[in-house]
Design a binder for these strands. Sequence first.
DNA 1: ATGGTTGTTTAACAA
Length: 262
Amino acid sequence: MRVATWNINSVRLRMGLLERLSDEAAPDVICLQETKTIDDTFPRAAFAAKGYTHQHILGMKSYNGVAIMSRLPLSNTGHKNWHNREDCRHIFATLPNNTEVHCVYVPAGGDIPDPAANDKFAHKLGFMDEQAAWWKSRKDKKPKIIVGDFNVAPLEHDVWSHKQMIDVVSHTPVEIEKLTAWQKAHNWYDAIRHFVPESEKCYSWWSYRAADWTASNRGRRLDHIWVTPDLQPALKSHIILRDARGWGPKPSDHVPVMVDIG
DNA sequence: ATGGTTGTTTAACAA
């Protein structure tokens, strides 16, 4: 089974790229973030035409929005709200093999890494605190996968320069502390670093603002796939589809991140 | 140190 996560930054604008992902990588499950549309205008039929007939979506106007597009049946679908907001950042569903899939879009957090001066940063930290508390309270042993744009690059080599990124939102110590606490709260295992040694640079996002994203290669690993420990032996391979950062005519600034679980 | 781009929706906001 192949599971993908992709911050698509408008699902309507980039349906063509999603069809290409289906043709070239054929994920069984595609988890999307930043769909940026209400559910009535989500391109359900285009996904169904590619075999993704099982769909769980939660969108709003203009911002955020998450979706799980699946070739396998989905059951027990639902969503979570965090930090007293209903901003369409977390949905989940169960696959036929009883694995629970969570698709999460963590707030980006704005530019100033100070919760007192920046409400968006406070929201991001609170979101992660609440995730940690909720996952800690879940004691069941059901196998689970949690994926998405977590908007935090936790490890030294998850950014192009640890030194130059230390005060930049997405790589500050307090964000890394919150993300790590959330990870520990349910023994989540980092499925991508299972395959890519921590000493190796690994990115899933490149800014639109770079004149030439390939030349500067100032990336960050913001998109993650974590699994519960019981699934670790089932991890078969991973793909970070770097080429998709150049897919035309208008690429997302994030690329698809995938694992094969067998 | 600064500014650089994109998407949604139409001037501002979020990323």
